[in-house]
């Protein structure tokens, strides 16, 4: 899932300082699961903003809505009738959700309430860890299902660096050395020999280094003249 966390209340307050009526829009998908921008978080943030403005001696109307998926036009079309009555929209979606709203409602000021952090999973209650950077060329079949792109601090492809100490990364004592994990996993699977093959330098052009990315599926595109 996409993992995000809320910006500070002060930062959000500052963004909305000129607004009197705001629509807070949550998203029912990734950011609901990571407790950053679901219906409950929309409620808590909206309530906090209303009270903070009252404490400052002013008032702020914050209406609340959570759509199933903020990153698809079909799900945000339903806001079209009401959105113009607001001074601003506060999105509790990921960066994709914010931009979807901005594209759908170009005349409206859309403010991000979250910082989108990474693609990851909950390793325990209240803890999320990065697992994928979307590098565009997956090699998990070579590394025992453990990603050296997202989990090795130096993104190494041929074993650990000298900073790996007792299975821990030198960058952060709470981070396991990805290559130690890969070694152990492939050892358990009897596939250590696989690691003796030297991986050539990675072609990063499939990642962000290649610029803005886009996927086109001709088999899914609508024929000319047919509307979506």
């Amino acid at each position: 899932m996409i993992v995000a966390e809320q910006k500070s209340l002060d930062e959000i307050k500052a963004m909305l300082k000129d607004a009197k009526k705001v629509l807070a829009v949550g998203c029912g998908t990734c950011v609901t699961v990571c407790f950053a921008g679901g219906r409950n978080e929309v409620g808590v943030l909206s309530s906090s903003l209303r009270m903070a403005r009252e404490v400052d001696g002013d008032s702020l109307t914050v209406d609340e809505v959570t759509v199933q998926r903020q990153c698809e036009t079909e799900y945000i079309d339903g806001l079209a009738d009401d959105v113009e009555s607001y001074d601003a929209v506060l999105s509790l979606g990921c960066g994709v959700g914010v931009q979807s709203l901005a594209e759908r409602f170009p005349a409206m000021r859309i403010f991000p309430a979250l910082n989108t952090k990474f693609m990851g999973y909950p390793s325990e209650h209240g803890v999320w860890e990065e697992r994928c950077q979307g590098c565009g060329n997956c090699i998990l079949h070579l590394t025992g299902g453990i990603c050296p792109v997202s989990r090795c601090s130096k993104q190494l492809f041929n074993g650990p660096c000298g900073g790996s100490q007792a299975g821990i990364c030198e960058v952060d004592p709470d981070t396991s050395c990805a290559w130690q994990l890969i070694w152990e996993r492939l050892g358990e699977q009897g596939l250590i020999e696989q690691l003796m093959e030297v991986e050539p330098p990675k072609d990063w052009s499939t990642s962000r280094d290649g610029g803005h990315r886009r996927i086109v599926r001709d088999d899914l595109r609508l024929p000319d003249g047919e509307e979506g």
Partner: peptide, 16 residues
């Protein structure tokens, strides 16, 4: 509390 009683919350789009 400095919060005015019954401060406006909720709205037409499914708020409380």
């Amino acid at each position: 509390s400095p919060i005015a009683r019954g401060a406006c919350r909720g709205g037409p789009l499914g708020g409380p």
